[in-house]
Simulated scan of single mutants.
Amino acid sequence: MKRLQKTMITHKPLSYSAGILLLTVFIYGCSSPQAGTPPQGPPQLPVMVVASAPATTYLEFPASLEGKVNVDVRPQVSGYLEKIYVDEGAYVKAGQPLFKIDPKVYAEQLNGASSNQLAAQANVEKAQVEVDRLAPLVASNVVSDVQLKTAKANYEVAKAALAQAKAAVGGARINVGYTLVTAPVSGYIGRIPYKVGALVSNIDAQPLTVLSEVREMYAYFSMSEADFITFKNDFPGKTLEEKLKNAPAVELILADNSTFAQKGRIGMIDGQFDKTTGAITFRAAFPNPDGVLRTGNTGKVRFAREVPAAITIPQEATFEIQDKVLVYTVADSNKVTSRPIHIAGKTANLYFVNDGLKAGEKIVLSGTANLKDGAVITPQPVPADSVLKSKQL
Score class of each variant (00 low, 15 high):
300 K>C: 00
345 G>F: 07
330 V>D: 04
45 L>G: 03
113 A>W: 11
135 A>G: 02
292 V>E: 07
162 L>E: 11
311 I>L: 08
232 K>M: 11
94 A>P: 04
338 S>T: 05
140 S>M: 13
63 A>R: 02
202 N>P: 11
106 Y>G: 02
292 V>W: 00
15 S>K: 13
321 I>N: 04
387 V>L: 09
46 P>N: 01
331 A>E: 10
116 N>L: 15
152 K>F: 15
115 S>C: 06
113 A>Q: 04
268 M>N: 09
301 V>A: 04
234 D>R: 13
291 G>S: 02
19 G>F: 14
80 Y>N: 09
301 V>G: 03
88 E>G: 09
219 A>W: 04
158 A>S: 07
163 A>Y: 06
325 V>N: 01
326 L>K: 08
270 D>K: 00
364 V>H: 03
156 E>F: 12
354 N>A: 05
357 L>Q: 04
223 M>L: 15
121 Q>M: 10
168 A>L: 03
14 L>D: 01
256 D>Q: 04
187 G>F: 04
359 A>S: 13
81 L>P: 02
208 L>R: 05
292 V>K: 06
117 Q>W: 15
261 A>M: 12
137 L>K: 07
344 A>I: 07
232 K>F: 07
229 I>E: 14
96 Q>T: 00
366 S>I: 03
334 N>Y: 08
31 S>K: 15
68 K>Q: 14
282 F>K: 01
128 Q>T: 03
79 G>T: 01
64 S>A: 15
347 T>M: 06
69 V>K: 13
256 D>R: 04
197 G>K: 12
259 T>N: 14
47 V>G: 05
22 L>V: 09
73 V>Y: 02
224 S>M: 04
112 G>F: 10
233 N>E: 15
101 I>V: 00
43 P>Q: 13
329 T>W: 09
189 I>M: 08
218 Y>D: 10
124 V>G: 02
345 G>Y: 05
300 K>E: 00
379 P>D: 10
24 T>F: 13
164 Q>Y: 07
104 K>Y: 12
233 N>T: 09
145 D>K: 15
112 G>C: 06
150 T>V: 08
386 S>P: 05
391 K>G: 03
378 T>Y: 10
330 V>N: 04
114 S>P: 02
207 P>C: 02
217 M>S: 11
309 A>M: 12
257 N>F: 06
196 V>L: 15
221 F>E: 06
268 M>Q: 10
327 V>E: 01
187 G>I: 07
321 I>G: 06
